[in-house]
Design a binder for these strands. Structure first.
Lengths: 221, 221, 221, 221
DNA sequence: TATGAATGAGGGTTCATTCAT
DNA sequence: GATGAATGAACCCTCATTCAT
């Protein structure tokens, strides 16, 4: 009977103790996810054994399996959270993309100057540890990528429309959005994971965004 | 035994049987690498056990350890070969990049229209299976990426010089080159590994390259 | 708490609420035993976890441990109940065995035509799930078998006496009774557990009983 | 590539070393099966961990998994061997069953006076440890029982034919054979596993066989 | 009484690696 | 050089049992 309630989303009022228990539950879940995130990012997904994670989260192995179906599930949940956080932070910027390129530029700034330096572990997990681990994890990675790419694609189309320009095809916009994701990804990997130049990332990100915008503006000529 | 090996490395003439043995040795090495490549790409690095690889290459497990120090070494060697092949195919194109953008365009064409459809397993290993496996493997991945990025960077600088333009900084060129690598990577991942649209890759690649060139040309305005 | 329990065991009158509580307690106990019986028979003793049993009985795991010392105890109680039910149903028949073989025949009919088709789960637990689980459970199984065998033995001796025949030894009667139990057991296992021919069991049982009676009557020649 | 050769049943002559290796292989297999048999019978299937078995057989855990797919497979192989041994020992007696009951009597003698006292562990595994362990094991148990029952059934039919008697139906013979198996089983369980009266088993077995024969002869009246 | 989250020992299994032949 | 049986550490996971609420 694992996680029978999960999300008590019905409107029934909860008793005080029930509320507290739910809060504790969520706290513990966060603690575990945090420990897993740190260990996955630090030692790698495979070297981070369930026992290590349990120790690090100061719970027993059994508790891990009470909150998560298995190790893979732990990674998937972590991934979902990262994906949610990312889209959450970038969402507003993308939505503000209209006539000018400012929305795009802002999204780049948020990613490189805010997200990367503050959540390097998330970057490591999203771009390194979750790669090629299993079909299920890949499916989740793909879903997150697809959503992010779609966010970018829609922003691009909106800007274009407003500028009176047009993409040659639907595919073109998708390819451009995909390209942008790839640029973000590799620059984060290169300058945050492989080199630790998190202070330079703001500048580096600007360069990258300039490059991107140059590529986009070509459409308006 | 050591003496024999040294023979192979200096100019001393080899006896007929020694020649044959060396040839056989290289063939067997290739066979093993091929089997490993197929299994790594197909089942994943971890699920592809040394036993499976040995079976697939029709040798014994012991033989694997005669030719390769350990499983990690097998992946590293595979990676080196892939890196070599990639640079080999793209090298000429990059070197031909001078005034016009044709060299860049040609490199993109070779990558998307030639390399990807012909060596999907190499793509899967380079961009998926070798990611986050160990410090050593990551070091090799980084080295290959660094070289490729440097190839692109030099081509970019040459084109710029010839156009009378200049990068704001050395970093800018590097960032641009890194971005380009990221685009190639993600597009290959998206349209070759996740979706199987190898026939569309030529067109998709052209779109991506157009995007890149647009970004670059901005420098010349 | 102890005092209350003792109340239930002496003749002291119980208050209305106490009565209700006792009734509820017994109902709950039955519910749990029922759920356990179904799960043990359906999934097997080991695969039926305490959590599954709790879920199925719509109580919490803790409640299980309030009513039963541990999982083994649950099986033992179940076994006792089955043993009691069996002897209860067969008892009258055995006691009626006097001159003729009709008592024996009736006991066989009850077992194969009544008990087996109506309580296949009991059969599965008694003859399959409780086998070789632990020393304690084996001890209980043995006790039940011993009692049943003794019932048969006494019936056999009575019939013999009345026919003026005699067993060679006390052991002979016991061996014969044991044999009869073995026949009942294996036929139930074969035609109820392994094959599902519960409708044929009545006929099959008659055949078996004829065989038995033939063996017994030999003593009277 | 586990057990690639298993049974080198082609006619190719084996080299000396290959012969030795095969012999060693078979010896080790026997050693493991022996250790497993002793532990399964002594501690019970579940309490006998793979590590204990490995220790007892003086091999490593890995070696266990080289020779057997998993723990269940170990039990199944053991069961098959026991089934083979049983039929082997009883086979000749059953085949000799023709006009008289001597074949049947002989089979009983072999089972109770030879097999049981010499192979009590086999009895414990066949009748106790392998019961209700898994669907696969049950399937194997059933197959063995079916074969033994069929051996008995054919012997019964042969004796009947020669006596000019007839079974009421095909089912009758099967039921009688099944009954006999059940008698053998429970007597062995009662007097060998639960009580240790292996010296009395010969006498007890005779009583049981007399009972059986009485039951059979009824057909000839 | 009832709950169910937490525990942690224990089990089965895998697989990279070694080494005698 | 080649073989493949043997090793054993390490891992993931289960589940009976407990106990604070």
């Amino acid at each position: 009977m694992k996680a029978k309630k999960e999300n008590q989303e019905n409107g029934a009022p909860l008793s005080k103790s029930a509320l507290r228990r739910q809060r504790e539950r969520e706290q513990r879940l966060e603690t575990i996810l945090g420990a897993a995130q740190t260990l996955f990012a630090g030692e790698g997904y495979h070297k981070a054994s369930m026992e290590k994670i349990a120790d690090s989260a100061e719970v027993s192995v059994g508790t891990l399996y009470f909150y998560f179906k298995n190790k893979e599930d732990l990674l998937v949940k972590l991934l979902s959270q990262i994906g949610f956080d990312l889209r959450n932070m970038l969402g507003a910027a993308f939505k503000s993309a209209d006539i000018s390129m400012e929305g795009i530029r802002e999204a780049g700034r948020i990613f490189f100057a805010e997200f990367c330096p503050h959540y390097p572990e998330s970057i490591a997990i999203f771009f390194r540890e979750s790669v090629g681990q299993s079909e299920l994890v890949e499916a989740h990675r793909k879903k997150i990528f697809d959503k992010l790419i779609d966010d970018v694609r829609q922003a691009l189309i909106r800007v274009c429309d407003n500028q009176g320009a047009r993409f040659q095809s639907d595919l073109s916009a998708e390819v451009m959005a995909t390209s942008i994701m790839g640029m973000f990804e590799r620059i984060a990997y290169q300058y945050l994971i492989w080199q630790d130049r998190s202070e330079d990332l703001a500048v580096i990100g600007q360069d990258a965004v300039d490059f991107i915008i140059g590529g986009i503006e070509r459409l308006f000529r």
